[in-house]
């Protein structure tokens, strides 16, 4: 008899919610980005600029001493050890941090604005993990797009400056292997910092009570 009661077919039985529709979360995340286009574009640009800065500094720092030394050796001039440009590294780290704070704030505003939507979804049966996914996907989307744009922009700037500085000889002397390693690293760093920045806002959204849907005042 006890078995029959716990088998959960009659009245008085409660099941456990398990469904995790990722595609729905993705669709909602993408459309939410479009709905808040101005803010999305601003966040996108922040990531783009920060990543472009990172790529540019990284490539230039790898390129400059190598190519310069190669040129010096070619002309039989003794090589002086180059001073690492630590100030630029400070600036890059700072810019990435500022970028993270910006994303975090934008997402927090997003979450606060959408309290009713989040509460409603929870009333409809959404799990915390669904809400978490919603906001992390939104952030990840911006992160990937912003990083790709930043990568192209930073690469273009670094190459143009190097070409202008060293002339055509740069093409033959540049350490292409080392440069090729920088791009995938940046491709990982960009989305990683955007998702990291969105963790707290997304968690805050996920923990929101369904009763938030009932709130009338904003």
């Amino acid at each position: 008899m006890a078995e029959l009661i716990s088998s959960g077919t009659g009245r008085g039985a409660v099941g456990r919610q398990v469904r995790l529709p990722l595609r729905q979360a993705l669709a909602i995340a993408l459309r939410s980005l479009k709905l808040r286009l101005a803010r999305s574009v601003l966040t996108f640009l922040t990531i783009t600029m920060a990543m472009a800065f990172l790529v540019d500094v990284w490539i230039t720092n790898a390129l400059d001493p190598t190519v310069r030394n190669a040129i010096l050796i070619q002309r039989h001039i003794p090589v002086v050890v180059a001073v690492r440009r630590t100030r630029e590294i400070w600036l890059v780290v700072l810019s990435l941090l500022v970028c993270m704070v910006g994303i975090s704030n934008a997402m927090l505003i997003n979450v606060m604005e959408r309290f009713r939507e989040i509460g409603t979804m929870k009333c409809l049966g959404a799990l915390n993990s669904f809400i978490l996914k919603l906001f992390l996907l939104e952030s990840l989307g911006l992160g990937v797009l912003g990083t790709l744009a930043g990568l192209l922009f930073g690469l273009a700037v670094a190459m143009a400056v190097a070409l202008n500085h060293f002339g055509a000889v740069f093409w033959t002397l540049a350490p292409w292997g080392a440069l090729a390693g920088i791009l995938p690293a940046c491709l990982a760093i960009g989305p990683a910092i955007t998702v990291l920045a969105a963790l707290y806002p997304a968690w805050k959204a996920a923990c929101m009570e369904p009763v938030a849907a009932m709130r009338v005042e904003v």
């Binding site: 409660v14 099941g15 456990r16 919610q17 398990v18 409603t120 929870k122 009333c123 409809l124 049966g125 959404a126 799990l127 369904p210 849907a213």
Partner: peptide, 13 residues
């Protein structure tokens, strides 16, 4: 999880 299930299937808001 049970509360979410209840809200999803037993109650309409």
């Amino acid at each position: 999880l049970e509360l979410a299930w209840l809200r999803c299937r037993k109650i309409g808001y």
